[in-house]
Design a protein around this nucleic acid. Structure first.
Lengths: 203, 203
DNA sequence: TCAGACATGTAAGTCGTTACATGATTCA
DNA sequence: TGAATCATGTAACGACTTACATGTCTGA
């Protein structure tokens, strides 16, 4: 059993926090991971089946009286083991395909204003995204300081099985924040780059 | 004819510089674009066929006497048009999947040293890549100042069809350099992030 | 002469998304 | 009552990559 399919590991990692349904997983990723990871339903549901097939997770259908049908998945011992192995394993740098950079590069034979338009669009996108990120950042910083976790953050952090104490929660929240910081620093660097381009090409 | 398949546009854009073979395209990408774009042979050759089929490029087989077989592709008027349309079109931000960030995020329930190991590996990777980039940067800066273009850079920039003058070459070289700068700024930001993580998690 | 670059291509597989299909429950 | 959200799934397609297959030319 090699450690390679990333979706498997992503889902396993989330299940290692708490048992969840496919729907939960999707929502969780949308809420807090979308700036570095994304999954579609069409990928999540089949993967959950495979995890069960391979004994890495177990499925509990819960059509409890009056309740909606819900398939809750729980990570198994083997699943935990595989996940830990993957966490330890080295990470190959991804093969990049950045369409905007491609456009910019290929604009070299066009008029300068073409290059500039491309870069300005990029800058606007980055600035807009950065604003949202900074907002989330402020909320998280507050939460870490005060110990008062906003509803949605708490949902992500909370775990019915093993009640987390405040210290554990704070640590998780810190990681959460640092993940966000990666996005923020990356965006700031991109905006700096845009400024540099505009300056150099305007000479 | 919509503007969507990125590989088509990447190849069209390179052909807009000068006629090339599939092999040339691959080498060119490996040499100068790999930090923001990549293509495999298994993608390039079929795409070239499609471009010809759609009238966006023309193929000239040249098994000239004594020469090796070589299929050279030339962009057509329609191809140029489509490429320009694509350059003008807006660029959607890519759906990201960053395995390292995923690992870091999912390490939040593990011991701190697990998170730290992940980040330190990342930092080492970035520093190694940065060093190479800085080297290329120095060469390009020199070239722009002196007007003396190194062999491989010149190969990328040169164009048998329409001889470029020094000014045009310098502009292309600037774009080349600025593309590199994007990579450099991104890497520096990532290294900064690693430092921040190490500091915060060591408290 | 033979390794390594040059050169082209295909078939199978990987890994994912989009669109579709279905239906229950909640709440305004 | 009907829109929104909850919830699960599948089939078709998309956009590649990898591995394979094949052969040529060049220069040490």
């Amino acid at each position: 059993m090699s450690v390679k399919k990333k979706t498997h590991m992503a889902i396993l990692g989330l299940l290692s926090w708490q048992p969840m349904s496919g729907y939960d997983i999707k929502k969780l990723i949308e809420m807090g991971l979308s700036h570095f990871w994304n999954e579609s339903y069409g990928n999540i549901y089949p993967t959950l089946d495979l995890l069960v097939r391979d004994g890495l997770a177990s499925k509990t259908s819960s059509p409890q009286t009056g309740k909606r049908k819900r398939n809750v998945y729980r990570i198994t011992e083997r699943g935990e083991q595989l996940f830990r192995d993957w966490l330890q394993s080295s990470t190959e740098p991804p093969v990049v395909r950045n369409e905007l950079q491609l456009k910019f590069f290929l604009s070299s034979k066009c008029p300068t204003k073409t290059s500039l338009r491309i870069v300005r669009e990029y800058e606007a996108q980055q600035r807009a995204a950065l604003e949202e990120f900074r907002y989330s950042e402020a909320i998280l910083r507050q939460a870490i300081q005060t110990g008062e976790f906003p509803r949605d953050v708490d949902e992500v952090l909370s775990c019915q099985e093993t009640k987390l104490n405040l210290k554990q929660k704070r640590r998780q929240c810190k990681i959460f924040l640092l993940s966000l910081r990666h996005g923020i620093l990356a965006m700031e660097a991109r905006i700096d780059w845009c400024q540099e381009v505009i300056q150099v090409l305007s000479e």
